[in-house]
């Protein structure tokens, strides 16, 4: 039985309004339960690739299937339901700074309600409890009524992870989740992602800057350069030279 890929990108091309090519003819299959890391220089198109998957960026050509269903063609209501299946974690955490941690995490449930209910804050007690449990899973339970801007960077990122956990998605997209954090907190955040991957069987696709973290947590590596996939393979089969090539190759320009 051929397994249905969780994410499938077919001939995806993205050209920005100003003519810059973001993605060039990407073909990619990611299966359920994989932990994929995408590596590449900044500006190589990692972020664009990730944002194409949940259609935060619309693509110019091609098609993207989520669990066999095209997100490219989805209309507003259906798009929301599809996005519900895809959680996202950001480099800058993207919490609403002046809202409480509880409210930030509850936002993960938005697509499960009609808009008017959430507007009047009519979340079920069950969802509130679910939120609290998610916060306990990432060790942030005692901050549930704090305001998001009172937390440190690492704490904010864990709240963001709790938000994704509350959303109960099948896929998690992590866009440089550790880039604004110190090494120790970075590792904790990656452990949390690993927990989501192993315990809840969520498919994780993460952009990572740090080769070290990529090696420690990723199962599969995808290398991106100038909007194209230049490498795709299992982590254990990937020699150091591949990373060297991705980061130091390009136009022969030395990067640190």
């Amino acid at each position: 039985m051929a397994e249905q890929p969780m994410i499938e990108m077919k001939n995806v091309t993205k050209v920005y309004d100003n003519g810059t090519v973001g993605l060039k003819n990407i073909n990619l299959k990611i299966n359920k339960g994989e932990f994929v890391v995408i590596v590449g220089l900044s500006g190589a198109g990692k972020s664009t690739l990730l944002r194409a998957i949940n259609r935060l960026h619309d693509i110019s050509e091609g098609d993207i299937l989520i669990d066999g269903e095209s997100i490219t063609k989805a209309k507003s209501k259906n798009l929301r339901l599809m996005r519900r299946k895809i959680g996202m974690i950001f480099q800058s955490f993207n919490l609403v700074k002046r809202s409480s941690v509880l409210r930030n995490v509850l936002a993960g449930r938005l697509a499960y309600y009609p808009t008017w209910k959430t507007t009047f804050n009519l979340f079920t007690d069950e969802d509130k409890q679910r939120t609290y449990e998610a916060l306990q899973s990432v060790g942030m339970a005692e901050k549930v009524y704090s305001r998001a801007d009172e937390l440190s960077g690492g704490q904010q990122q864990r709240v963001a992870i709790a938000r994704v956990l509350t959303q109960r998605p099948e896929i998690i997209l992590a866009d440089e989740p550790t880039a604004s954090l110190d090494p120790k907190t970075s590792r904790q955040v990656m452990e949390d992602l690993k927990m989501l991957n192993e315990k809840f069987d969520m498919t994780v696709v993460a952009n990572l800057h740090s080769i070290e973290l990529a090696k420690d947590f990723g199962h599969r590596v995808i290398g991106v350069r100038a909007g194209e996939i230049v490498y795709d393979g299992k982590m254990e089969d990937t020699p150091q030279s591949v990373f060297d090539n991705i980061y130091k190759g390009g136009k022969g320009k030395e990067e640190d």
Binding site: Y132, E133, Q136, S137, V138, G139, A141, Q188, E191, D192, M195, K199
Partner: peptide, 9 residues
């Protein structure tokens, strides 16, 4: 660091 489902508060 993740708690088990039993002892959720």
């Amino acid at each position: 660091m993740s708690a088990t489902d039993r002892d959720m508060l």
